[in-house]
């Protein structure tokens, strides 16, 4: 118990909690429409592109966020367009994109600085990666995502459920899709350094998937995703501190446990 209390006396842990909870919350909210629209792979692709961009920025000595945020936003638009235009080949295209970005990132690093701890922490995440600037940026981002979600809640639902109908009633569907892409890109760039490029997309996908097993209305799925995101991140980070585990992996395992629990519950409910 005293270990738990002591945990909150370290500023880096507090920063990790603040950034992690906010990023998880954003990722989970954005994840509901993304998963329902079958765009889950976009999150994964974006995180790898984000890794490539960060690696290049580090190698060239540029500010990592200032370089990678615009790159990832542009790629997000591109991937979204690709998913809309070619439903058959989009998963292959995204896979090609993310593998290539990863490969270029690794090549650039090994040619210049070598695989430093910096790069390793981008791959698998690090609890120490958060500084004051990240905290401020994550607060700003999450406020923006929350505000947009509240403000456009009904419209996000309508566009997610049925694009053709929404288009026919005069809604600007492309605008909502672009908004979704930009916010997802920002969330992934911010969360990646703590969670790791390999694991960040789980923050987007798991809460929505778990909630879909448990609840039947869109509103309940959204609320439950938000709650799950906060709870699982807190559990993961605490476990990571207590048992010296890598934080990204611990959070993903927390999400996996929640998902398996939900799966068992829904199976049990079906049998009744």
């Amino acid at each position: 118990m005293s270990m738990l209390l002591q945990m909150f006396t370290y500023p880096f842990i507090l920063r990790a909690f603040a950034v992690g909870i906010l990023v998880s919350l954003c990722a989970a909210l954005l994840g509901v429409p993304l998963v329902l629209k079958r765009y889950s792979m976009i999150g994964d692709g974006l995180s790898h592109v984000s890794f490539g961009a960060l690696a290049i920025a580090v190698a060239c000595g540029w500010a990592p966020l200032a370089f990678s945020i615009p790159v990832v936003i542009i790629v997000a638009f591109f991937l979204l367009r690709m998913t809309e235009k070619s439903p058959m080949g989009s998963d292959a295209a995204i896979a090609v994109f993310s593998a290539s970005a990863l490969a270029i990132g690794i090549l650039v690093t090994s040619l210049t600085t070598g695989m430093t701890t910096d790069v390793a922490s981008y791959m698998f995440g690090s609890i120490l990666a958060m500084d004051k600037g990240d905290v401020i940026l994550s607060i700003a981002l999450s406020l923006a995502v929350l505000a947009l979600f509240l403000f456009f809640y009904h419209r996000i639902f309508a566009v997610t459920f049925d694009e053709s109908f929404s288009r026919a009633t005069g809604m600007n569907v492309d605008l909502y899709n672009s908004l979704l892409a930009v916010l997802t890109a920002l969330t992934i760039v911010l969360g990646m350094r703590m969670m790791g490029a390999m694991l960040i997309s789980s923050l987007v996908i798991f809460p929505a998937l778990t909630s879909m097993r448990l609840f039947e209305s869109f509103r309940a799925v959204v609320l439950s995703s938000a709650v799950l995101a906060v709870v699982c991140f807190s559990l993961g980070l605490t476990a990571s501190y207590l048992f010296s585990l890598p934080v990204g992996a611990a959070v993903v395992v927390a999400h996996l446990s929640a998902f398996l629990l939900a799966l068992a519950l829904s199976k049990l409910r079906l049998r009744k």
């Binding site: 009904h154 639902f157 049925d162 929404s166 009633t169 809604m171 879909m212 209305s217 869109f218 309940a220």
Partner: peptide, 20 residues
Amino acid sequence: SQKDFPATVKEIVLSGFLSA
């Protein structure tokens, strides 16, 4: 994707009112 969409009938019917 609509086949496993978690939404209640009421939520869907009401969304018809969201036009431009």
